[in-house]
């Protein structure tokens, strides 16, 4: 069963393709992340799923139905452009948004109190939204997204602007929701978040999908040809070694892509004695590396193509 099934959707704004021939499947009960650089078409895709804009071509099925008004109360949505009515009181605003989703008043009140307590915002219930900090407003928006206990939760950049404590809180709640059988789709640039919690990913660049599937399988495809090195000293010589295809150097940390058929052991031998090695790990490439490689590839294709 798929919580979301997108088939060949295209959206143009004038001559500009925001999304081109995109298809994807989100299995029910999974966490799915949409990745891609700015302007890739993530938000447009999400807005089409939410029926806020209509695709020019293709079809979208949400929870096995075409998106309709009844469906909207089974879906929770946190938009990228976040905002709340600045003059409304927090409690009232949440009550209004729950009413739009068809939650009974009494039930809504209970849930609002529970969520405000969990986010440590109970004392702000009677305050106006404009008195809240940005981080607090983001929590209120998150509550509004899940208050009606939706089966499908779509979060556009949920972690942007959050401190580590609240990022963990959001991540914990997302996992909790997954364990309750709900499906979560979120878009982000933050690869470490994706690697930790996503089951499936979709990488979009320049309006087109460049990679989709189960995260574990994707990584396997790339094989164990990556070495992660935690070191001290001058490691600039590594780049010119014959085993090395590409490096991504952070100064004390390096991700090395090896040429095919080369043995990581040779690399270790050559490095010993020249630098101090704290950690040497052979593994699949990080999602970050895959992301950069894939986006680089498609961008090259575009610049050559034009």
């Amino acid at each position: 069963m798929n919580a979301l099934l997108i088939e060949n959707i295209t959206k143009r704004f004038g001559d500009f393709y925001a999304v081109r021939n995109l298809s994807l499947k989100v299995p029910e009960g999974s966490i799915y992340s949409l990745l891609g650089p700015n302007g890739a078409g993530k938000t447009t895709t999400i807005r089409m799923v939410m029926n806020i804009i209509i695709p020019d071509e293709g079809s979208i099925q949400v929870l096995n139905e075409k998106m309709n008004n009844r469906m909207q109360s089974r879906v929770g949505y946190l938009p990228e452009d976040r905002g709340l009515y600045p003059k409304m009181k927090v409690g009232e605003l949440l009550l209004f948004l729950s009413a739009l989703k068809g939650v009974q008043k009494l039930e809504a009140r209970n849930r609002i109190d529970a969520w405000l307590n969990r986010f440590d915002l109970a004392s702000w219930k009677q305050k106006k939204v404009e008195e809240l900090s940005r981080g607090m407003q983001q929590k209120i928006q998150f509550i509004a997204t899940v208050i009606h206990q939706p089966d499908l939760i779509i979060l556009d950049e949920p972690f942007s602007g959050l401190d580590p404590v609240n990022t963990k809180l959001f991540k914990d709640i997302m996992l909790e929701m997954k364990n309750q059988g709900r499906t979560i789709i979120f878009s982000t640039h933050r690869m470490e978040q994706v690697e930790m919690i996503s089951d499936n990913i979709c990488l979009i660049n320049k309006a087109e999908m460049v990679l989709e599937g189960n995260l574990t399988q994707i990584k396997k495809q790339y094989g164990k040809n990556t070495v992660v090195l935690d070191y001290d000293g001058d490691a600039s010589f590594i780049q010119s070694l014959p085993e090395v295809e590409k490096i991504d150097d952070y100064g004390k940390f390096m991700e090395i892509k090896l040429r095919e058929q080369s043995d990581p052991q040779d690399l270790l031998d050559k490095a010993v004695g020249k630098i101090r090695i704290n950690k040497f790990e052979v593994r699949e490439p990080t999602l970050n590396a895959i992301f950069i490689e894939k986006v680089g590839e498609t961008n090259e294709k575009y610049t050559n193509g034009h």
Partner: peptide, 17 residues
């Protein structure tokens, strides 16, 4: 204009037309 500039509109539009 307030709905638009405060960007609340998209949350509301996820529930209605």
């Amino acid at each position: 204009i307030e709905e638009k500039s405060s960007r609340v509109v998209e949350i509301v539009l996820s529930s209605l037309k």
